[in-house]
Design a protein around this nucleic acid. Sequence first.
DNA 1: TTGGGTGCAAACGGTTTGCACCGGG
DNA 2: CCCGGTGCAAACCGTTTGCACCCAA
Lengths: 181, 181
Amino acid sequence: MKPEQIVQRFEVFLRSHGLKLTAQRRRILDRAFATHEHFSADDLYAWMKTEPGPRVSRATVYRTLALLQEGRFVEGLDAGRGELVYEHVLGHAHHDHLLCLGCGRIEEFHDERIEALQEEAAARKGFVLVSHDLRLRGYCRTCAAKRARGEVAAKSVEKTGGSGVAKRAPADRARRAGSPR
Amino acid sequence: MKPEQIVQRFEVFLRSHGLKLTAQRRRILDRAFATHEHFSADDLYAWMKTEPGPRVSRATVYRTLALLQEGRFVEGLDAGRGELVYEHVLGHAHHDHLLCLGCGRIEEFHDERIEALQEEAAARKGFVLVSHDLRLRGYCRTCAAKRARGEVAAKSVEKTGGSGVAKRAPADRARRAGSPR
DNA sequence: TTGGGTGCAAACGGTTTGCACCGGG
DNA sequence: CCCGGTGCAAACCGTTTGCACCCAA
């Protein structure tokens, strides 16, 4: 989907809600759609500070991100880093995520059969589905190989070491809490 | 699984990690396995304050919950309330969750076919799976009916109202963030 | 005896918010 | 012009942590 089309859609969305298209909102939208990687609110804010353009505060980044989510332009994902990461979804097909516990890499995949079975499971319980998210956690090829070679130590509880609890943060709290709310 | 067995397992787990079984840890373990509902760290703390037994601080609740997760006695789940909710899993089969966006109810389901397809998807991407969680969000039979009858208003963005962004908190932040961390 | 455990209160940190000024439509 | 938008800084809030004292093994 072309940049102009996206901005146009955003403008329509805003207008239909009695909101305005400001320079800040436009800049955030552009930047969010300029990257094909997952980004955090802080990444976005850092880009706003670094790259040329109208000043954008952290508060506006968060407020606009909320609007973009509301309008289904972007989607938030708790990748276990203690902060939410976003990805633009307008013009992209739905997909689920594979999260590498070793390097944090995020891969995407899609399986229509799983989608169908989810719908079936919801129906069985009398639920009307609105959305879903499936996150598979494990080690990517590279990290799995490193671990097999014993190049990395497993996290531990005190001394003996265990499997490592899946906390909400990286480096045991690189993230958050408060799964960010 | 019987209470004594669980405590025994916990003791083994602790010992193997050079840790001690204290009155607080035992009390928290007992309480966590006494309920078959999902509970938050705060629920647990409230029970500790309310019910008779040795004093337990909020810090110890969190510290013990981390240990229980590490030992796979309980599992945390971000149900979108702004705080993590826990459920004991020792002695229970794996399952996924259905979250009602209307009343917050959490239902469980399991489908071996989905599990297999997840494994297949991971393999296709070269991932070694460690865990996964699938959350289906929607409206339970009761809430879906209410909505159909127009008894509830949709959340909105400012004035016109929209579909409501899936925030991490209840009542638009009844929770909290972080995504707990 | 001794190293781990606990309570308390302060710190964390991502995110939200109150307020006064700014600017798009 | 008018109401929504923005920056700033403070507030939020679930969770984590430093510290001094306590206790299980």
